[in-house]
Simulated assay, not measured.
Amino acid sequence: MIKKTRHTGLVVRNLSHSLLFYETLGFKLWKREVEEGNFIDTVVGIQSVCVETAKLHAPDNSMIELLQYISHPLLKEKQNSPSNTLGCSHIAFTVDNIDLTCKQILELGGNLVNKPIISPSGKVKVAYCHDIDGILLELVEEIL
């Protein structure tokens, strides 16, 4: 049985650029390393793989893992993930100030799907946006 969510992994084009993006939003780098060898080959199912990873903690101690495949980059044109993509749709973050966070995302090279709007319940303000690799993010500001 599942006990808890450990982390969410995000494959990125450039680990240093993505670190700057997520650290600016409030994540703190916990561990950065290069992984290669039999163990990681087996886990990811790619032979002779070399992947650089960075694990970052949010203020609530939840974690994301950024992965840049050095040996096997699967590069494609940057494409902003649509909301209805099969598989993992988006990752959602609770933020203190959604307007400021949206401004930071634009300044860092991301984009907005929508300007922040208040939900029908009136309890939250929500915006969808993309990070610098086109990964879909949901920002939620709780309205007290």
Rank of each mutant, 00 (worst) to 15 (best):
I2E: 05
K4S: 11
R6E: 13
T8S: 11
G9P: 00
G9K: 01
V11E: 11
V12P: 04
V12Q: 04
S16Y: 09
S16M: 12
H17P: 01
S18L: 04
Y22S: 01
F27K: 01
F27M: 14
K28E: 11
L29F: 01
W30M: 11
E33A: 13
E33N: 06
V34K: 12
V34W: 02
E35A: 12
G37Y: 07
F39E: 12
I40G: 03
I40S: 02
D41A: 01
T42V: 00
G45V: 05
Q47K: 14
Q47G: 08
S48V: 00
S48M: 03
S48F: 05
V49P: 00
V51H: 00
L56D: 04
H57Y: 14
D60A: 07
S62T: 13
S62Q: 12
E65M: 08
E65C: 04
L67N: 03
Y69E: 01
Y69H: 10
P73N: 06
L74G: 05
L75Y: 08
K76T: 11
K76Y: 03
K78W: 00
K78N: 09
Q79A: 13
N80Q: 07
N80G: 01
N80D: 14
S83H: 09
S83E: 07
T85W: 09
L86K: 07
C88D: 01
C88E: 02
C88I: 13
S89W: 02
H90F: 10
I91P: 02
I91F: 11
V95S: 07
V95F: 07
D96W: 00
D99L: 04
C102A: 10
C102F: 06
C102R: 02
C102V: 04
K103E: 14
K103H: 13
K103D: 12
I105P: 07
L108W: 06
L108D: 06
G110I: 02
G110W: 03
G110L: 04
N111R: 07
L112F: 05
V113R: 10
N114F: 08
K115R: 12
I117H: 11
I117F: 14
I117C: 06
I118V: 15
S119G: 01
P120N: 06
S121R: 10
S121P: 05
G122L: 10
V124Y: 05
V124S: 12
A127S: 15
H130M: 03
D131G: 09
I132C: 01
D133Q: 04
G134K: 02
L137S: 00
L139A: 05
L139R: 01
E141C: 09
E142V: 14
